[in-house]
Write a protein that binds this DNA or RNA. Structure first.
Lengths: 254, 254
DNA sequence: TTGTTCTGTTCCTTAAACCCGAACATCAAC
DNA sequence: GTTGATGTTCGGGTTTAAGGAACAGAACAA
């Protein structure tokens, strides 16, 4: 598909960075064995990253540095969604008392951007910046529902169907069938598709042309039922709408 | 000082990343001219970053991707300070009605980690992850006050004295004299040293051995005076103390 | 239409440097 | 003292990064 020319040294550098995060900090030898590379090679890369301030060293153990936080929060800020998204999200968390996330799509994956934990909310995804397959989450499905079937196929062909639980959608046809229902109702409700025992309700946030992202409320399956579920649905709808209005009119001039 | 072997291709890759942030997104040619490199070279690096999901492409313009947010928020989370820091910070912002930051030192620089904006607070540093010289901020100076003069010299020798305003400290001797006073009172108060017209008050957060960081309240110079200043001082002191207790006892098991 | 001038992309060739391996240094533990 | 685990240094062979020049495609003016 994309046999374009690539810088192999960059591959190794990025793999060092990723492995360093995966291992939650590591020494030279440990990294080298995990990456199946020579110790000296890893050492050189770590020295370079250290020189540029991208890793910190504590007694022979290397960790990623906060320089990544700079790049990361810059990137999030660039989307210019914070002012529009944060207050309604916050309000929604207060009203529903559950955990609320604002999610965007990037490169065929769902990225969790802004969170607010309500009174009784449980902490699930844990970190902003976390990525998941769009198929495996209500937030992702409601975004996909705004795309054409063709575009959905493109994404699933490339990304596949990572199975988070036994109930995670595993093929394109089932996904497209789900999306059809979501398009009708404008809301996505899932149970146990991302985490066992967790129910999620999501609504898309769209502009005139593009889809900005989605708002999702997650909580224990047995709690998000009956009246509480219905209340939640309409609360999310108005929160999503509120965000749309704020994006259109607000300080966020995109 | 450190003539160790370094991976030059990694240098160029990182410079591409940094330039991409500095230019707030750019095309191949624009990047190449800024970096004084061949277009083809930049192109190859961008392709590699794209392949790995570290940049996104919108009509021939490349931007850093949210993958950096993943690394960044992971790094911040690794410090395991959030649970201990966030609530007292939040309370302090409510009480003082000013802007509050929690700051840590990394590689001889001050890194802004957690923020809370009070009722009348003004948004100054803008993003978490932002780095500044320790000498140029109350938050940094109060951290330096916890270090030995020798260690302070090491840092200033390496980092120099970036001048943010005409009143920014410009040499080691003046800094050390300031630190002496700060050590006596346990509090750092600065005016116009980081931003013109801005006054900052900071207190360190320390454990039994190391210093975790500092809490800083910033606001307009003319507002942070008299009684409001004195109130602020004692509020910061108790907030910092609260954080120390939470770090020692809390869920944060370091 | 044609020409101009920006882009981004491809390909070739060579000098550079990445990567490995092996040796060395250092520290703990037994 | 010896063993085994680290991190570190260093020379050299061969991959390959990086530059330059040519190509493609779009936008625009004349």
């Amino acid at each position: 598909m994309k046999p374009t020319r690539t810088v192999k040294t960059a591959d190794t550098l990025l793999s060092v960075i990723n492995q360093l995060q995966a291992l939650n900090g590591a020494g030279v030898t440990e990294l080298a064995t995990h990456l199946e590379m020579a110790k000296s090679t890893v050492h050189d890369h770590l020295m370079t990253l250290h020189e540029h301030g991208y890793v910190v060293k504590e007694d022979d153990t290397y960790y990623l540095s906060l320089r990544f936080l700079d790049h990361g929060s810059y990137t999030r800020e660039r989307l210019a969604l914070k002012e529009a998204v944060t207050p309604p999200i916050s309000q929604l968390a207060d009203d529903t008392e559950e955990t609320v996330w604002f999610v965007v799509e990037e490169r065929g994956q769902a990225v969790y951007l802004y969170r607010e934990i309500g009174e009784r909310g449980v902490d699930l995804v844990c970190r902003s910046g976390t990525r998941t397959g769009l198929h495996a989450t209500a937030a992702g499905k409601v975004i996909l529902a705004g795309y054409s079937d063709e575009r959905v196929r493109e994404i699933t062909d490339k990304q596949g169907f990572d199975q988070k639980t036994p109930k995670t959608i595993a093929d394109t046809e089932t996904l497209l069938k789900d999306l059809k229902d979501i398009r009708d109702t404008g809301i996505a409700v899932t149970s146990d598709e991302t985490n066992r025992g967790v129910k999620s309700v999501a609504v898309a946030v769209s502009g005139t042309e593009e889809i900005y992202g989605s708002v999702v409320v997650s909580g224990p399956r047995q709690r998000l039922t009956g009246e509480h579920l219905e209340d939640t649905k309409s609360l999310i709808r108005s929160a999503a709408n509120e965000i749309e209005l704020r994006i259109d009119n607000d300080v966020c001039f995109r």
